[in-house]
């Protein structure tokens, strides 16, 4: 049997790279499960909205960061508009962290790693750590008193374990590039992975729940 233009996905093991990729993607998140319009009935708590709130806050963080980038490093020190954009960036970050931590608390008390969801939990924790690192480089990129103090303090901690040898917190040009390019890229990939895993496994059933045999 060959997959000749039937308009259907091939049933036999596909040989083209494209077919293999498609097969792989549909294996990770089967069709219809990426954006289902129904959810399990046990999903009935406000605690569930904090994942989406965190994701929404991340969008606002990236958008306000992009706005801040328009004027360059020193813009927000001299322009009231720039200062306001900086304030938007700061408060979106505060909201992002607050929502993320409430989400983390919720997922812990739900033991949301059950049912082969350990990798979802782990990518979530790594995203939290990546966010702390990204925020840290943001503090170093402010070009003000706080940057001076935080960088000269942080160099002691990071040098004590050898990290400072290649990650120089006293070099704001390096820190700015990590903040606006490298770390957001890595964080973005981890977040996408996290969300894909959530969609792949569906939301975790209640502790001690038994499958409903509704046949």
């Amino acid at each position: 049997m060959t997959a000749v233009d039937t308009g259907q996905p091939p049933v036999a093991t596909p040989t083209s790279w494209t077919a293999r990729l498609r097969d792989r993607i549909s294996h990770i998140v089967p069709p219809g499960q990426a954006l289902p319009d129904r959810q399990p009935a046990y999903m009935s708590s406000w605690i569930y909205v904090f994942g989406v709130l965190t994701l929404a806050a991340l969008f606002v963080v990236i958008a306000t960061g992009a706005l801040l980038a328009l004027g360059g490093v020193t813009w927000w020190h001299v322009s009231s508009l720039g200062r306001f954009v900086n304030s938007l960036h700061l408060w979106s970050v505060e909201l992002f962290f607050a929502f993320m931590v409430v989400h983390l608390w919720g997922m812990f008390w739900m033991a949301a790693w059950r049912g082969n969801r350990a990798l979802t939990w782990m990518t979530g924790v790594v995203a939290f750590l990546g966010s702390i690192g990204t925020a840290f480089t943001g503090y170093l990129s402010q070009a003000n008193f706080a940057s001076q103090w935080i960088s000269t303090q942080a160099k002691d901690g990071l040098n004590s374990v050898g990290i400072g040898a290649f990650f120089n917190v006293l070099n704001p040009a390096q820190m700015l590039l990590w903040h606006v390019m490298l770390l957001p890229l890595v964080l973005g990939v981890i977040v996408v992975l996290h969300v894909v895993l959530v969609r792949r496994h569906g939301i975790v059933p209640p502790v001690d729940a038994h499958e409903e045999t509704a046949s």
Partner: peptide, 24 residues
């Protein structure tokens, strides 16, 4: 660990995209 597949449970309508837009 005995946790059943989430797809084996009764469902109800839920609008994920609307939830995200409202959150945004």
């Amino acid at each position: 660990d005995g946790t059943p597949d989430s797809h084996g449970f009764a469902t109800r309508p839920y609008d994920l995209v609307k939830e995200f837009v409202v959150a945004l």
